[in-house]
């Protein structure tokens, strides 16, 4: 299973990020991973939450453009070279990465990295083949 990521379109205006986090927080939704991609006049907020359906509903109700995407949450050793190992496997097996960011999740000596890959199903197959731990929900 892939992870459900919610992305939100934000204009570069003061307070927009505060608005979104306020809405999410007031809705009792817990953020598990968050990142923002920004350009000169807009940004795209990406987040992994514990209640994706409620989050989508709340955002839409408040007039935000939001959508859901499938991403991979991969457990990575929290030690030097941990990410490199995963990247090497992806690279050798043709898993193309669009972007990645780290999550707030932090287990025993493990970190969780969120990958947006070109082909999610292929990504899952490779993860399974190489017995890499995948997070399918928080």
């Amino acid at each position: 299973m892939a992870l459900r990521q919610i992305s939100v379109f934000l204009e570069n205006k003061t307070g927009r990020l505060a608005d979104v986090s306020g809405i999410v927080g007031d809705g009792g939704i817990n953020l598990r991973a968050i990142s923002i991609a920004d350009t000169a006049d807009f940004g795209i907020l990406r987040m992994i939450v514990d209640k994706p359906d409620e989050t989508l509903m709340l955002l839409e109700k408040n007039g935000f453009t939001a959508r859901e995407n499938k991403v991979l949450g991969v457990e990575v050793d929290d030690s030097p070279g941990g990410l490199a190992k995963v990247m090497k496997t992806f690279d050798e097996n043709g898993v193309n990465i669009e972007y990645l960011y780290s999550s707030l999740e932090h287990g025993q000596g493990k970190a969780v990295v969120i990958f947006k890959v070109e082909d999610v199903d292929h990504g899952i197959k490779i993860l399974e083949k190489y017995k890499m731990n995948r997070v399918s929900g928080f």
């Binding site: 990521q5 350009t39 795209i44 939001a66 959508r67 995407n69 947006k116």
Partner: peptide, 11 residues
């Protein structure tokens, strides 16, 4: 205005 149908998570 960015509508759902042409919003993408990729910049």
């Amino acid at each position: 205005e960015v509508k759902d149908q042409f919003f993408s998570d990729e910049t």
